[in-house]
Design a protein around this nucleic acid. Structure first.
Lengths: 161, 161
DNA sequence: GATGTAGGTTGCGAATCACTACTTATATTA
DNA sequence: TAATATAAGTAGTGATTCGCAACCTACATC
């Protein structure tokens, strides 16, 4: 078996590291969740999450820096600042929901509100991986394709004894 | 070891907070990614990620505590320890891939290897949210349903000025 | 003008991270 | 068998970040 692997920790080449660079800090995902739930103001986030104010200020600034939130001063009340999800921020929804579903499935979560389709109020499907034709894919059915080479994913490598 | 920090909110008994409790620390997702890529040993993780040894030891112990990795001593070489993904750990794949895809889409990632269907080597679909019948859902088509009540998601609240 | 509100910043102790050296147990080699 | 190498950690040490509370500034309201 080839020893070809991805170069982990290489920020230039790894989307996961890049995502974590923006979202990997403590509270970032909870802030995003609050934003998805319609919160827009510093004091709202602070009250809802119970996060320390300096930490919240730092996180919001970072999320704005990364283009996940957009910061706008409200013209009707110049004290107020609106933090709104950008398209980039909103596109984190599948990742966030996948994480949330995982937590619900495996954690001791009692009764969380469920994400439902607005049209029929039926719960959405669990987030899963799908082939180009829509088939659901399991771990064993996946590979990395790296410009001509193939690497097994999730497989066991022999111990070189 | 364990939780010296306060828990993230207990935000509505939220699955997201629960997931972050297990996976929210620095390096956890990168370790998981390495595990998905077939790494099994302490030294492999350490060399690949360049993470400090004490931090790695702590993270691995935590992931084992949370049932994401399973720790087994290798009988053929009693120095070696195998860290393997559990079912719970493996079920983080959609969340991880969603994060990764987001990072690839929005970051300045050059050329990552692509996840492909093992059967036809075609790239998998971007992770997305789907209704019970398989329709793709956008943010505007979603609501929280909370045992009887409905909460708008992503909507604007009125400024109570 | 006085008071309240929104969105921060500052200081400081506690907790965590990261770098390096050390340890312990096992395996391999001479 | 002794010497050396390997695997998986621990321990000591600073640097960094977190979290709490108090404070500050601009604006709005009374």
């Amino acid at each position: 078996m080839g020893k070809l692997r991805e170069n982990l920790g290489d920020y230039d080449n790894c989307g996961l590291a890049s995502a974590l660079e923006a979202m990997g800090e403590r509270w970032s995902f909870m802030i995003l969740r609050a934003a998805f739930n319609g919160l827009h103001h510093f004091e709202e986030f602070q009250a809802e999450l119970g996060i320390a104010r300096n930490i919240l200020a730092g996180r919001l600034a970072r999320l704005v820096d990364h283009g996940i939130l957009e910061r706008t001063a409200l013209p009707t009340d110049r004290r107020k600042v609106v933090y709104a999800l950008t398209e980039k921020g909103a596109s984190l929804l599948p990742a966030m929901v996948a994480l949330r579903q995982w937590g619900e499935t495996w954690g001791r979560i009692e009764s969380s509100p469920t994400l439902v389709d607005d049209r029929d109020e039926l719960p959405i499907r669990p987030v899963a991986l799908h082939a180009h034709d829509g088939r659901a894919l399991r771990l064993e059915e996946l590979r990395w394709k790296r410009t001509g080479e193939l690497t097994e994913l999730g497989g066991h490598r022999e111990e070189e004894a």
